[in-house]
Simulated scan of single mutants.
Amino acid sequence: MREMKVLVTPTSLCQNPDGEALRALRAEVAEVVLNPFHRPLTQAELAELLPGVDGVVAGLDEYGETALAVADRLKVIARYGVGVDRVDLDAAAARGITVTRTPGANSLSVAELAIGLAFAVARGIAYADAGVRAGEWPRINGRELTGGVFGVVGFGAIGRLVAERARGIGMTPVAYDPFLPDEAFAAAGVERVDVDELCRRSDVVSLHVPMTPETRHLIDERRLRMLPPDAIVINTARGGLLDEAAALRALDEGTLFGVAVDAYETEPPSASPLVGHPRVASTPHSGGHTREAVQRMTEQSIADLLTVLRGEISPNAISRTSI
Rank of each mutant, 00 (worst) to 15 (best):
G131M: 09
V132F: 06
V132M: 14
R133T: 12
A134H: 05
G135R: 09
E136P: 07
E136N: 13
E136M: 13
W137A: 15
W137C: 15
P138C: 14
R139C: 14
R139D: 13
R139V: 14
R139G: 12
I140R: 01
N141K: 15
N141G: 14
N141Y: 15
G142E: 14
G142T: 09
R143H: 10
E144Y: 14
E144C: 15
E144S: 15
E144N: 15
L145E: 09
L145A: 10
T146Y: 12
G147W: 04
G147L: 07
G148M: 13
G148E: 12
V149D: 00
F150C: 15
F150P: 03
G151M: 13
V153Y: 00
V153S: 01
G154T: 08
G154M: 10
G154P: 07
G154Q: 09
F155S: 05
G156L: 01
A157L: 11
I158F: 01
R160S: 15
L161F: 02
V162I: 11
V162C: 07
V162M: 13
V162W: 01
A163G: 04
E164F: 02
E164T: 12
R165C: 09
A166C: 09
R167G: 15
R167E: 15
R167Q: 12
R167V: 14
G168H: 07
G168R: 06
I169S: 05
I169R: 10
I169G: 02
I169N: 07
I169Q: 10
G170D: 09
G170N: 10
M171Q: 08
V174S: 07
V174C: 07
A175V: 06
Y176G: 02
Y176R: 03
Y176C: 05
D177F: 00
P178C: 06
P178A: 11
F179I: 06
F179Y: 12
L180C: 05
L180N: 03
L180M: 06
L180P: 00
P181N: 05
A184V: 11
A184I: 05
A184P: 05
F185Q: 03
A186P: 09
A186V: 10
G189Y: 00
G189F: 02
G189H: 05
V190F: 00
V190H: 03
E191S: 10
R192E: 00
V193A: 03
V193N: 01
D194V: 02
D194C: 05
D194M: 05
D194P: 02
D194G: 03
D194K: 00
D196W: 03
L198M: 12
R200E: 13
R200K: 12
R201M: 07
R201S: 09
S202W: 03
S202Q: 06
S202K: 02
D203I: 11
D203M: 12
V204A: 12
V205F: 14
S206D: 13
S206W: 01
